[in-house]
Amino acid sequence: MSQAAAAGQVRLPGRPAGALAGLRACLRAEWTKTRTVAGPAWLLAATAGMTVAVSVAVIAAVRCPAGMACPVDPGRLSLTGVQLGQAMVAILGVLTISSEYSTGMMRTTLTAMPRRSLVLAAKAAVLTGEVIMAAAVGVLGSVLAGRLIMPGHGFTAARGFAPLSLASGPVLRAACGSVLYLALIALLSLGIAALVRDAATATGIVLGLLYLAPVAAGFITNHHWHNRVQRYSPMPAGLAIQATRHLASLPITPWGGLGVLAAWAAAALLAGGLLLRLRDA
């Protein structure tokens, strides 16, 4: 095939020219790869399942006893499961490219589709699509759990906690934003995996990047540094999108926070794509 490409004139039947057509072919190839192995399906199911499970567990644990002020953001609380769901998404994002390196499949892929940035773009697109589907299930389940359980735990309308509803703007933003958050985490993982290739190392880096910031923030007493960590690290900044009240007290605006995460994901993808082109597979 590479000889055919080098000749420049031989065109295989059923393989139209053009970048768009190339992208379509890449997308089809990636989609076939994803749906024909069991791993991604399990991970997507785990993303939705664990998001809902942790959300339900946390919602069930939190009560607002009579006579106590409850400075709780119901939207953020009912979407707590995203903090575990993102770990599943991270595995999925990492394995999208790392498993090809570990099995040697990458060489086949790049022989079939020599335009490497196109391969990464196709992987990113397929990954984003499937993660959005799974995340939507997990997030909707979490919001539903919050709507059903929280009023029985003292979070009543009389005390200023209207039942969670996607019809309310902030809740809709938190829900859609959480889905986008998980998609961006997947892209960040894909970019980092393209950088370091090894699945375990990439997973370690992604999860370290995500989980260490809130741990470090807990130990930093300096107000300025605490704020900086909350504003510029992917997890605390990205999860600002889950806030549904007291937006003024947030270290970063909801969409601004998601933007910070998007910048992290874009940087990782860019660096990963660059190295993919520069390095031998």
């Binding site: 575990l84 599943m88 595995i91 699945a199 997973t203 370690g204 999860l207 370290g208 989980y211």
Partner: peptide, 10 residues
């Protein structure tokens, strides 16, 4: 490895 690392960290 990816699943094991995630399980431990989580």
């Amino acid at each position: 490895s990816a699943v094991a690392v995630t399980a431990v960290i989580v």
